[in-house]
Write a protein that binds this DNA or RNA. Structure first.
Lengths: 212, 212
DNA sequence: TCGATTACTGAACGCTGTGTTCACGAAGTT
DNA sequence: AACTTCGTGAACACAGCGTTCAGTAATCGA
């Protein structure tokens, strides 16, 4: 056991952090109640009907909050959606590093596949879809979801290389894509179902190659 | 040289086919002029401003056609978009089969990457994004774009197996994903640019594996 | 206690796009 | 001719967007 990589998905700074700080702004402070209400409403609507149902008007109405207030703190629909997603699907996924790279990858990928097979997967698909026409959402998705996962995976793979379990001349970025991109691909382009045995197959073929 | 696989992307049946048929419908025949005008207008708008600009109203206006007529023949925005895409980006991509699987894959993947790097790639990304909330678009995309490519690739890979260039126990579906999904992934989730050298790396690693 | 400052509200607004209805004329069939 | 289907323009109700406005609420420093 070499330790454990923990991926923390932080949302926008909590208000408690702000209000406890010394340098308080003058004037009425931002309402934590409102913030929570908006994100909860957005998360509910996302679960119920996806991005289509999560309109700004619906969020404001369900949260019992003025539409103006929502627009004040979140610039776009995508921003609300992703904040709600990370607030309520706060996934602290641990990346095991037991020393057996194949097994560690298998655990990690299976967990991701299970997440993708459920409601969270459908929402993630819609978020990525929406990101195609929302640059702000795209960068947020990269910073808060993709980058931390890749960082953790890269670290584990580097260790495996040091242990001699992987070729030292591997292109890690391409290698990670060959492992994980198929999951995203099948999530977004469902040419084939997300078979629970897919991780095993992907890892075996990625490690051993295709030549006889 | 073992021959060539040609992938033909057929759009909705051309009107010329219909009108030349014997069993003509009674009544005023559908106007080919209108159909062309709609698809051209849609393609133009797609190129200019993506899906966001390609609204039904804009298409009808630019085509000089009644909005009702557009709705009569195409059920949704996605349907118009994909018809326009395949009508004006009619890509007859040939899949070489020279006997050297690595080289053939490289040619094919490089061609796809070049396409993805240009305007067609941006539009494809938006189409896939839109497909997340448009089931009809999703199936059309699978039938007209994904399936024919995978069929051709699968055939080439089977031949390679017969020639002994690839392991016989390969999971071809997973293998194809490991080759091509990274391209789609980087197109949709641009965590890293679509490097022209990516195909070479992907193919090398997929064929040779990651173990030392 | 009193401004000053910032947060939130409700109602309304103009705008754009969706998807539909209607009555009418156009272009083919038998 | 009668018949059938196609295309048109105008109008419609509906929904969501993003914004403006006047007014109220909460917290500051003095």
């Amino acid at each position: 056991m070499y330790g454990t990589f923990t991926i923390e998905y932080r949302s926008t700074a909590r208000l408690s952090d702000v209000t406890s700080a010394i340098d308080r702004k003058p004037g009425r402070p931002r309402s934590e109640r409102v913030r929570q209400a908006v994100l909860s409403a957005a998360a509910e609507l996302l679960v119920e009907g996806g991005m289509a149902a999560m309109t700004m008007e619906a969020v404001a109405a369900r949260a019992g909050v003025s539409k103006v207030t929502v627009y004040k703190w979140w610039p776009s629909r995508g921003a609300v959606a992703i904040d709600a997603y990370f607030e309520h699907y706060r996934q602290t996924i641990t990346f095991p590093d037991t020393g057996d790279i194949a097994q560690d990858l298998q655990r990690q990928m299976s967990a991701l596949l299970r997440a993708f097979s459920g409601r969270a997967g459908a929402i993630m698909a819609e978020l990525i879809g929406q990101a195609q026409t929302d640059p702000a959402l795209s960068t947020t998705l990269l910073d808060r979801w993709i980058a931390p996962r890749r960082d953790a995976t890269r670290a584990v793979l580097r260790r495996a290389i040091e242990r001699g379990q992987l070729r030292a001349d591997l292109d890690l970025e391409a290698f990670m894509d060959q492992l994980y991109a198929p999951l995203y691909f099948r999530l977004l382009v469902p040419h084939r179902p997300l078979d629970p045995r897919l991780p095993r197959t992907l890892i075996r073929q990625a490690l051993d190659g295709a030549r006889p």
